[in-house]
């Protein structure tokens, strides 16, 4: 309340002796005591600050770097997976029974008509083996044969075309005949 007391001092307390009035003076500066040195603190804080920022930067950069790395590897994985699929597809196509049968036929192999079975533990032969001939080997066919409906349609078309041709031929023959007759008639007419 020293601030409040100051203006009051001269007039409002006449009962007080002017000698007792204290003058406002500046508080003396505190004595220089044993304070902590400032520099290490500043250095520490700055280091923390700089360290944090740099660390964050490095961390971020490395994350970004690994993101690039990840993408690169991802792309590589995709390419390799596609390659694997392509090879797998090729293999499966090679396993197509049609292909195997064609290869076997090239080598002169046939499906056996009758084979015997060896039962090793029982030491016996079951069934009778017969020489393999071509009788049990179905023919190969490279593509699906023309379906019946198409064959019938083609046959009909062929028949129709033949009929038409025959008709035309007959018509032509008739025409020729007529012409010939007419020619025969004409001279005879002239003779008459």
């Amino acid at each position: 309340m020293s601030i409040a007391a100051a203006p009051q001092a001269p007039g409002r307390s006449p009962d007080r002796a002017p000698e007792t009035q204290t003058r406002l003076t500046a508080v003396p500066a505190p004595l220089p005591g044993p304070t902590a040195p400032r520099l290490p603190f500043v250095v520490l804080v700055s280091m923390l600050l700089v360290g944090g920022v740099v660390g964050l930067l490095v961390f971020n950069t490395s994350m970004q770097q690994s993101a690039f790395q990840e993408q690169k590897l991802q792309e590589q994985a995709t390419t390799l997976a596609a390659r694997e699929q392509a090879l797998d597809g090729e293999l499966k196509t090679m396993e197509d029974p049609h292909k195997i049968a064609a290869k076997a036929k090239e080598l002169g192999m046939v499906v056996p008509q009758n084979a015997a079975m060896l039962r090793v533990p029982a030491a016996k032969v079951e069934g009778e083996a017969a020489p393999a001939d071509r009788s049990a080997t179905p023919p190969l066919h490279p593509k699906v044969a023309k379906p019946y409906s198409v064959l019938v349609a083609e046959q009909k078309a062929a028949e129709l075309a033949e009929k038409k041709k025959a008709q035309e031929a007959r018509a032509q023959e008739m025409a020729e005949k007529q012409e010939a007759e007419e020619q025969q008639r004409t001279p005879s007419g002239e003779a008459r």
Partner: peptide
């Protein structure tokens, strides 16, 4: 494989 054989035999 049996399916192949059956299809071919049937086709024939």
């Amino acid at each position: 494989d049996l399916q192949y054989y059956v299809q071919q035999t049937l086709m024939d």
